[in-house]
Amino acid sequence: MPGHTLKTEEYFITKEPYFQPVGEEVQVFEAAYRQQLPVLLKGPTGCGKTRFMEYMAWRLKRPLITVSCHDDLTASDLVGRFLIKGGETLWVDGPLTRAVRNGAICYLDEIVEARKDTTVVIHPLADDRRVLPMDKLGELVEAPPEFCLALSYNPGYQSVLKDLKQSTRQRFIALEFAYPVPELEVTIVVQETGVAPEQAAHLVKFANMTRNLKGNGLDEGASTRLLVHAAKLIRGGISPVTACHTAITQALTDDAEMLTAVNELSSSLF
């Protein structure tokens, strides 16, 4: 089937994405959305932040524009820039501007990765002015009520230098994401992969063992995402111990002794 090209601001998610709420995140996000408050999603990697945004976009019936931030991301990359075509200058909106104009949900993933001077362009959008100044055009774009700004941020592994500035974070409603309690995580793994519930329960138990090691030799424990990966391998006929080793353990560390220890843990479980 040939790929079908769509402009992001015209792309509506039509099929309900599977999202398992862990707390009141859906209600809080909806309330914030109605009150036109921007939202900050905090949480470790692979705990369902992106999935949550897809789900909310579907629920609120708005297009979702996601920008993955990196350390070379400039303000122009977000807002827009001039191009030249046939001797004429031509302004091209950046993703943030397109989201504002179209009343979409704009999700800036891993915001701390962006350069500090980039982060400030979202400030006027994120307080009660809700406008996007476009200095180069000498214009202001007012955000319609449907527009929503969301950021994600992983407070865990970044260094102090990459902390989010107070002036930025204090503009947002913060939703904290954590790994779900075991029963829910089992449900997620089963739903996502169709693996047997007992297998999923073992995987979740294993994940929690690695999470016990966080800060004790591991920078981060296994995320729900890694569990889903391992479960998919198991569905594909790989033995649980091998699946855990390749999908989870190897992804967590390169330290030889830690690898051995974590493998001993998984072989104790299965």
Partner: peptide
């Protein structure tokens, strides 16, 4: 290795 193992449990 054993210590990591214990902590993981």
């Amino acid at each position: 290795v054993l210590l990591h193992f214990l902590h993981g449990l």
